[in-house]
């Protein structure tokens, strides 16, 4: 589903990602972990071109999104993203947030878009909030709406950029539950997270980044029980 070849990303003189190559299969759930500043978020943001790679190639569904000929708007329709700070549209209701892109981008009728939206709101347990503005929701509710908003475009891949890092502790669980339910649907997911327990439980693979290098790429039981690199061992000692 996603293939990354020799990806390099620099911000001016600072090289944030150094020659990263990996693959994410269809339906696979990949957790991206590592210390802060290791390039996790940047890697994720390269996959829908919120950051433009400096060198290398990224293929999403066999399309080279780094090629200048690629229609990036088309690719982004197929790659949903959930942000740390939700980024809901504050001037639209919950319903408005969910129906805007399907109507504007995919040209769905209001009735069709509303039907998808109501269905998704039901799945994230927020049907009764459809007509509220985001400012009236709690952090956990906002993030569930944000997940539903991304899913409303019916993407093949979902990217999560630290989806629980801005939440109060008691709200983390409700968001993780929604994500767990999503894993069962078989959608491809890339999750940047600090929730090690969650990563261990749901991920098929763990990517460990440090200093812009992809240091380890292993199934969670192997990574968490016997990491190969010293850097990963030190990291796990601190967080577990």
């Amino acid at each position: 589903m996603i293939r990354i070849e020799h990806l390099v990303k620099s911000f001016g003189p600072l090289e944030v990602l150094k020659d990263i190559s990996t693959e994410v299969g269809s339906g696979e759930v990949v957790a991206i972990i590592g210390p802060s500043g290791s390039g996790k978020s940047t890697l994720l943001r390269c996959i829908n071109l919120l950051e433009v790679p400096t060198a290398g190639h990224i293929f999403v569904d066999k399309i080279d999104i780094t090629s200048p000929k690629c229609d990036i708007l088309k690719v982004r329709q197929n790659v949903g993203m959930v942000f740390q700070h939700f980024n809901l549209f504050p001037h639209k209701t919950v319903m408005g947030n969910l129906t805007y892109a399907p109507m504007k981008v995919k040209g769905l009728s209001k009735a069709d878009a509303s039907k998808i939206a109501l269905d998704l709101l039901d799945k994230v347990g927020l049907s009764e909030k459809a007509d509220q503005y985001p400012s009236r929701l709690s952090g956990g509710q906002k993030q569930r709406v944000a997940i539903a908003r991304a899913l409303a475009m019916e993407p093949a891949v979902m990217l999560f950029d630290e989806p629980t890092s801005a939440l109060d502790p008691e709200m983390v669980k409700e968001v993780l539950e929604v994500m767990k339910a999503l894993v069962k649907t078989g959608i491809t997911m890339c999750i940047v997270t600090h929730e090690m327990g969650f990563a261990r439980e749901v991920a098929d693979r763990v990517l460990f980044l440090d200093g812009g290098y992809l240091v380890e790429d292993a199934p969670p039981d192997i990574f968490f029980s016997s990491p190969k690199s010293d850097r990963a061992q030190q990291f796990l000692e601190k967080v577990l």
Binding site: N48, L50, L73, K74, V75, R76, Q77, V79, G80, M81, F83, H85, F86, N87, L88, F89, P90, H91, Y100, A101, K104, V105, R149, A150, M153, L159
Partner: peptide, 27 residues
């Protein structure tokens, strides 16, 4: 306007014009 608004619109595949007219300028 928070730059997250721009990123959220972009990540949904919204083009520049509707993003400006519907999301950024109203705010």
């Amino acid at each position: 306007v928070d730059k997250g608004q721009r990123e959220a619109s972009m990540s949904l595949g919204v083009a520049y014009r509707p993003m400006m007219l519907d999301i950024i300028l109203p705010q």
